[in-house]
């Protein structure tokens, strides 16, 4: 193993659920306020996943009471306690920055159905 991966290996978690662009995630993060610790949940659509090793990050986007919010999470951050995939989206590109200009109906993402996943063989 090269020295860089050897250093990173200690920080990589093996329990990362499979997800990609277009999926809706619920991310539980630890927040420390003074001496109290609580869990905050952020739910949004994955519009980008990039980087590798300990530097891998993903961006979640949501519209919260009319305000567009985007948050970037380091995938292997120890402050992320849980990642839930709420919905699997059907999208045709890896980066969904086109969502930024869209509102309402056009900003929706189709859900990926299981039947569509299996391609007919012949």
């Amino acid at each position: 193993m090269d020295p860089i991966s050897a250093v990173e290996a200690k920080y990589l978690k093996d329990k990362i659920p499979e997800f990609g662009s277009g999926d809706t995630l619920r991310v539980h993060t630890k927040i420390i306020e003074g001496d109290k610790e609580r869990v905050q949940i952020f739910e949004g659509v994955v519009i980008q996943r990039k980087g590798k090793g300990t530097g891998e990050t993903f961006t979640l986007r949501k519209v919260s009471s009319g305000v567009e919010v985007e948050r970037i999470f380091p995938l292997y951050s120890p402050n992320i306690t849980k990642i839930n995939r709420v919905r699997q989206g059907k999208v045709r590109r890896a980066k969904l920055f086109y969502l930024r200009g869209l509102k309402g109906k056009s900003a929706r993402i189709q859900e990926k159905r299981k039947e569509e996943k299996e391609s007919p063989e012949s």
């Binding site: 990173e8 090793g53 300990t54 120890p78 402050n79």
Partner: peptide, 9 residues
């Protein structure tokens, strides 16, 4: 270079 996390995350 790479990045690591400290105890505070």
């Amino acid at each position: 270079m790479t990045r690591i996390f400290n105890q505070k995350g």
